[in-house]
Design a protein around this nucleic acid. Structure first.
Lengths: 235, 235
DNA sequence: CGCGTCCTTGAACCGCGTCAAGCCAGGTGG
DNA sequence: CCACCTGGCTTGACGCGGTTCAAGGACGCG
């Protein structure tokens, strides 16, 4: 572990109102967790959790973004999901004592780790929190299953459009325009489930059609409506 | 709704010991649920839940099997998951009031439906149950994300092998041999995420290589070790 | 300046989806 | 009983979309 322990603040002082813990835990448990949690700082591209390593607890993103990846044949990477402030990383699971996926910071991030034993104690005494996490996982499952279908049925162009819109819906708000896609080509192609050459071709096409803007280092969506029409038939 | 209400039994009389309700609910809640639940009988190929229809509650499979499907472009079907006795169907989700997927019986099945209000009451007063459902969903999410990667990276042969082993691991025990795959070609190809012509070709190849046995209506796995070696590099 | 990394574009190959024909089994009706 | 039809499955042929290989450009860094 090369990330250093960050200046830890208590849950009461934490400003992340979307945190599951903050929203649903009693004062007593907030102070217990404040004592037990380990808050760490991660630089861009740093591993937060690694596939196959021992699952010591549940990660809560205080601020930042991360990509959730699964490695296949020849360590080829698939981005299965993106996470942001307030999201959780790590699976609760009896039998499983190892992370089935890896998580890597997309930008500088501050992340709280709460160990399994503490979490179990909290879960058994805070039904609302457990319920909210159950809902969170079930919604992620729903999104994930839609993505299975899309991976099986979409062509490369639609996969790229889907990936751009997915990023946009997660990280951009409607005040900012045109929408910035702050990922490099490797990450976008791994998110779309295609190779980077195909991604380049599709992006070039979309640029020629005046749907996106490509600057030196950035991608902007200038015609989101058009993109939405493309993926609409998949709902 | 054309399935008829089945001779309903109380949870105490129910023999499905793997049911989440049965495992974790108190006596009082078991009797409350027994009063509230609606137990129905479904024939093979009958819809249990339909994508887009109103989500009235949570389904518990008392006995039987079901396929969970998502429909894409031109109503093309993707089987995203299979479920069996003791599993649950239906997503808990605040915002979502409609099923994101459809569920169809693979064989004659008996299924209990418990409405959302009753479930919420149970969840808030039975932390262990809520916790177990959270674990269930998080495990399904993990499986689902592996499948996303496999859909993006596997070739058709590997997808077929993966689908056969998936079915086998869910529904067959090790006393029965060779392992029966009790799905028709349409369902296997929709599970593998390929078209039925490609499936036929791969199955013919596997038959010639003496890895599976094809009879008139059935598929048997005779050399499971070989199949496992194929998907091993994906873990 | 040279080097490495990321990105783009071209070109060739081939895996897979599509179209089409044929087979087999089961069901229906004359 | 046979004739016919239908649906599920198999196999072949073909062509396109996408993967792979390769070369070159743009940029940052030592």
């Amino acid at each position: 572990m090369n990330q250093h322990i960050f200046k830890s603040i208590t849950c009461n002082d934490c400003l992340t109102t979307s945190c599951f813990i903050k929203k649903d835990c009693s004062e007593e448990y907030l102070s217990l967790i404040s004592k037990k949690k380990e808050t760490s700082f991660y630089r861009k591209n740093q591993y937060i959790a690694q596939e196959g390593s021992t699952m010591i607890g549940l990660f809560f993103i205080q601020t930042g973004k991360a990509k959730i990846i699964s490695e296949g044949l020849d360590r080829k990477i698939q981005v299965v999901r993106l996470t942001k402030t307030g999201d959780i990383i790590g699976y609760r699971g009896y039998g499983k004592e190892r992370y089935p996926i890896s998580a890597i910071a997309l930008e500088e991030s501050i992340i709280c780790l709460i160990d399994n034993y503490t979490m179990y104690d909290v879960f058994m005494n805070t039904p609302k929190l457990t319920y909210e996490l159950m809902v969170y996982y079930s919604n992620e499952l729903s999104n994930s299953e839609t993505k299975i279908r899309n991976q099986a049925q979409m062509n490369v162009r639609d996969k790229v459009v889907d990936a751009l819109l997915y990023y946009n819906s997660l990280f951009n708000d409607y005040n900012q325009y045109p929408f910035l896609i702050d990922l490099n080509r490797q990450d976008i192609s791994a998110l779309a489930g295609i190779n980077h050459e195909q991604l380049s071709r599709v992006l070039s096409d979309l640029k020629k059609e005046n749907i996106i803007i490509l600057t030196k280092n950035e991608i902007f969506i200038s015609n989101q409506d058009y993109l939405k029409k493309i993926v609409a038939p998949y709902q």
